[in-house]
């Protein structure tokens, strides 16, 4: 059997290349759509996820096959998260000045997310493991999964909820800020990072350097705070 032209050591095989190209093009189309419609609801992350999700369904392609190519983008999430240190350092004077209000707002937001997430799911009839998966949903996915695991939630469900919460924040943060008359970029950044971690942050980072700095602080600090508090909260909530 002859194998024409294809040499695995030299080129990215066709299927992963297709996945990678499709991801970039779907995202770019989403960016263009948002530019034309001028609404945050046309979010490029949401648009790309829906388009690719439908494409995989229609072509009977497994997520694993898609991820074989898309993982090269996924891998960059690591260095991109580390890169959040730079806007943080550039705004360090503002962060120092706002430190006490920042911590108070962070604790308030963090508790709101954990308690209302668990409480509402429970009140609406969800089982305890499912409601516990709701508790860390506003954290960045790897922390959320770890917390869900440690308190008796369902890690894979929690990952789905964490990403959905991020997308929800990305599409709603502008409208929420407008309707509450929140104009302070520190507040908008901290809220986006606390409620929607990385995907929430990705919406506000290009808008203002202070929003980028506060979203980065929120992502890290909320992760740490909830990771420490969650076992205690879960113990207190166990009987309800």
């Amino acid at each position: 059997m002859t194998n024409f032209g294809y040499h695995p050591a030299v080129f990215l095989p066709l299927a992963p290349l297709l996945a990678l190209t499709l991801t970039l093009m779907a995202y770019l189309a989403g960016v263009e759509l948002q530019r034309r419609l001028k609404t945050p609801v046309a979010n490029p992350v949401l648009f790309a996820v829906v388009v690719i999700g439908i494409a995989l369904r229609l072509t009977h392609t497994s997520f694993a096959a898609y991820f074989a190519g898309a993982q090269f983008l996924h891998f960059l999430l690591g260095p991109a998260t580390v890169a959040l240190a730079i806007p943080l350092v550039q705004s360090i004077e503002v962060i120092r000045r706002s430190l006490v209000p920042l911590l108070a707002a962070l604790i308030a937001g963090s508790l709101t997310s954990a308690l209302t997430g668990y409480g509402l799911a429970r009140a609406l009839g969800a089982s305890q493991p499912i409601a516990l998966s709701m508790l860390p949903k506003s954290l960045t996915t790897p922390i959320a999964i770890g917390v869900a695991e440690s308190i008796g939630g369902v890690p894979s469900l929690c990952a789905v909820l964490a990403i959905a919460a991020g997308i929800l924040v990305a599409v709603s943060i502008d409208a929420v800020a407008r309707s509450l008359r929140v104009t302070d970029w520190q507040a908008i950044g901290l809220a986006a990072g606390t409620a929607g971690s990385g995907i929430g942050a990705s919406r506000v980072i290009p808008q203002h350097p202070l929003a980028a700095a506060f979203a980065g602080v929120a992502l890290g600090a909320n992760g740490l705070l909830t990771a420490l508090l969650a076992p205690l909260l879960a113990k207190l909530l166990k009987h309800w």
Partner: peptide, 10 residues
Amino acid sequence: LGLLFVPAGV
């Protein structure tokens, strides 16, 4: 950063 979340979102 948004683009980098697409694979996990899918």
